[in-house]
Design a protein around this nucleic acid. Structure first.
Length: 273
DNA sequence: ACGAGGTCCTGCGAGC
DNA sequence: TGCTCGCAGGACCTCG
């Protein structure tokens, strides 16, 4: 489940493809495309130079001249570069395969294909970018901004924290962890959170995202770094995936619910109020 | 405008 | 053993 730290890791690992040109590309399934047809994407990629590879929110962004390929890995997507022909196992979920000018193969792999690919011109990019909220690791995500968004909403604070309009990059795992660290009940309505708790949530979100980047992300099952390795942050989780187990702070049995946005929420009813 | 809930997609593990 | 079923969830959609 690539969130910000996982995509950041992938993008850093794959900087070595910058400067190469895409010789040709293949696509095995069209259901991962949004707003573009297969021929349009494949013809568009052909002959284009990869000028930059960056991250925006939970997405990897390839800039190729005046176009951008946005990869939204969703649940099970990963980006990998192969120097040898794909083995049957590697080929099985390799949805997009781009042959680079140096002969290497850039692959978007996605088992469940919840992930999507966008092919954007300048106008499409502007529309995509402006629909997203601030980057949490940039100064633009201020306490004032976050507290203001919380104050305007009666939705659960966890849902607001995961809403990419308000702040990007935080998904289910890191929302659970940040709210635990900040000692805030995930179901608390945004408008009841208050400025001090908002500041704590913001601080811990930033701290946890940075720590997760240092650990190369969280691997539960499918996520792999840009070099095919597993992340290590799953070893540092306090609540996610630990329903029924003892709280690492107070020993209370951790609670679980699906009441918020139909996502698995795990929390300590004693520590989080 | 906002919130609630459905949909996509496949592998895996629990339960019978 | 072999089957069914529920679950995992980011982004996007519709409905009220």
């Amino acid at each position: 489940m690539p969130e910000l730290p996982e995509v950041e890791t992938i993008v850093r690992d794959l900087q070595h493809v910058v400067g190469t040109t895409i010789r040709s590309a293949e696509l095995t399934h069209v259901d991962i495309l949004r707003g573009v047809t297969r021929p349009k994407l494949l013809e568009g990629l052909k002959g284009r130079r990869i000028d930059t590879l960056t991250r925006r929110a939970k997405h990897a962004v390839f800039t190729l001249g005046d176009r951008r390929l946005v990869v939204q890995p969703g649940m099970t997507g990963s980006l990998l570069v192969h120097t040898k022909p794909l083995t049957p196992e590697e080929a099985k979920y390799a949805v997009l395969r781009a042959t680079l000018s140096d002969g290497r193969l850039l692959v978007y792999r996605d088992v469940r294909r919840i992930g999507t690919l966008l092919w954007l011109d300048a106008k499409g990019w502007a529309r995509y970018d402006s629909a997203l909220g601030p980057e949490p690791l940039e100064p633009e995500w201020t306490v004032e901004h976050f507290a203001g968004r919380l104050a305007k909403s009666s939705a659960a604070v966890k849902k607001i924290l995961m809403d990419q309009k308000h702040v990007v990059g935080i998904g289910n795992i890191y929302a659970n962890e940040a709210l635990f660290a900040a000692k805030v009940d995930p179901s608390k309505p945004g408008k009841k959170v208050g400025i001090e708790a908002a500041a704590r949530i913001r601080e811990h979100s930033i701290r946890i995202l940075e720590a997760a980047i240092r650990s190369q992300g969280t691997t539960f099952r499918d996520y792999r770094t840009g070099t095919g390795e597993r992340g290590n942050f799953q070893l540092e989780l306090f609540v996610y995936g630990r329903e029924g187990e003892p709280c690492r702070v107070c020993g209370t049995r951790l609670s679980g619910t699906h009441d918020i946005d139909a996502r698995a929420t795990v929390f300590c009813h004693r520590c989080q109020t």
